[in-house]
């Protein structure tokens, strides 16, 4: 299944590996939190890149010490109305300093993209056929352009209205 990442549709090179299957041959495996927690030395000592899927009822602090081991963390949306992963994402980015890829998986729809991006996600999984994927990408660009003035700070770099007003005040003082 492809993903939208940094505004492009790319083939997903990560594979979620259920706990009962071996990881040996997989270049970029995503493992469950349970597998990571119970992980044997081999998993812990693994050199290759590793992804983690975090259930949305988990406090990110639980893996705070291991974050540098993951190149990817997947956060789950069992249904798009379940917004727990937004908080997880912001905690991972803003509190725990996670810098790897943060991906939204599950029921992720176009009308979430802006919120996801603001909370620190950088990729979203895309379901459906080629046409659906094309529409999703188009939707991603539309979503990014829809709202230009956020009203609160979040995990992204967009300056909120209060900062824009501050800049305007500073400019007025300077001129």
């Amino acid at each position: 299944m492809p993903v939208i990442k940094d505004g492009r549709l790319v083939e997903d090179d990560w594979t979620f590996i259920p706990d009962f299957l071996p990881l040996d041959e997989v270049a970029r495996p995503v493992v469950s939190l349970a597998r990571w927690r119970d992980g044997d030395c081999a998993l812990r000592a693994r050199n290759g890149r590793l992804g983690l899927r975090l259930p949305n009822d988990t406090d990110p602090a639980a893996i705070g010490a291991d974050l540098d081991r993951f190149a990817l963390i997947e956060l789950e949306f069992p249904v798009f109305k379940d917004g727990r992963a937004y908080s997880q994402a912001r905690l991972l980015r803003e509190r725990h300093g996670y810098r790897g890829e943060l991906r939204a998986v599950g029921e992720v729809v176009r009308d979430q993209y802006f919120f996801l991006e603001r909370c620190g996600f950088d990729s979203v999984s895309v379901a459906g056929d080629k046409a659906d994927q094309g529409r999703a990408l188009e939707g991603w660009y539309e979503a990014m352009a829809e709202i230009s003035v956020p009203m609160q700070p979040a995990a992204d770099q967009r300056p909120p209205a209060s900062s824009l007003r501050e800049r305007r005040r500073a400019a007025a003082v300077a001129s």
Binding site: D82, G83, Y86, R90, F114, F115, L116, M151, Q152, A161
Partner: peptide
């Protein structure tokens, strides 16, 4: 009102 408007984290409580 301003802070809560389209809050990215709290729109799906």
């Amino acid at each position: 009102r301003q802070w809560s408007t389209l809050h990215p984290e709290f729109s799906f409580l």
